[in-house]
């Protein structure tokens, strides 16, 4: 059973190294500035947990480019998931920490991997419960395809077509001690 707890996975390929991740973030930051004519009213909200790290990195870049600090919040979507009681293990609920009002802001949601779109759907619901943003944009480091909902990212670090059996793993120094993105595949054993 793919993704089951018994399956073994091994690394198939590295799709981004540390420099690649940095370049992707830099490009996303520039695109945000370009598309929004600066960073006026921009706030970043990362999805727990690696989306938050990425949001902070983007904020640093934005400050380099524009000289303005952009607020960064952390969003936990556990309570908005659509698979409660269905998942093998129950996710731990973590804190949502958005210490600023999002009303009338341009909110950029930041996540590491865009896949089925369900996490993004949950994140949008969660955000809407917190206020009424002027607009909502989505930034992801990797888009691996296989969408199950009509959702599209505004900023993509890397498009990487994958199969369902594969897994995209984003490793960041903040959490994992290293910066790289790899594809894992299931082994027969």
């Amino acid at each position: 059973m793919p993704g089951g707890p018994m399956s073994q996975r091994r690394e198939k390929a590295q799709i981004l190294d540390a420099a690649g991740i940095t370049r992707a973030i830099t490009r996303i930051a520039h695109e945000i500035v370009e598309r929004n004519n600066g960073v006026q009213d921009i706030v970043l909200v990362g999805l727990r947990s690696r989306g938050v790290d990425l949001a902070h990195r983007i904020a640093v870049k934005l400050e380099e480019i524009e000289g303005t600090k952009v607020p960064v919040g952390a969003l936990d979507i556990t309570l908005y998931r659509d698979d409660l009681g269905k998942a093998e293990t129950q996710p731990v609920v973590r804190r949502t920490e958005i210490p600023f009002a999002i009303n009338d802001k341009k909110v950029v949601l930041v996540d590491d991997v865009l896949y089925t779109g369900r996490s993004c759907r949950a994140a949008m619901d969660a955000l809407m419960d917190l206020g009424r943003p002027r607009l909502l944009q989505l930034a992801v480091l990797v888009d691996r395809g296989h969408r199950e909902l009509p959702i599209r990212a505004d900023y993509v670090g890397k498009n990487m077509p994958t199969s369902h059996q594969e897994q995209v793993q984003v490793l960041l120094t903040e959490e994992d001690g290293v910066d790289r993105v790899v594809i894992l595949e299931e082994t027969a054993d």
């Binding site: 908005y80 804190r95 949502t96």
Partner: peptide, 22 residues
């Protein structure tokens, strides 16, 4: 685990819209 989970739940009480779809 229960106490840790309650930390996140407590944040909901401070919102204008005190409802999650869980």
């Amino acid at each position: 685990l229960i106490l840790d989970t309650a930390i996140s739940m407590k944040e909901i009480a401070s919102r204008d819209i005190k409802k999650v779809p869980t």
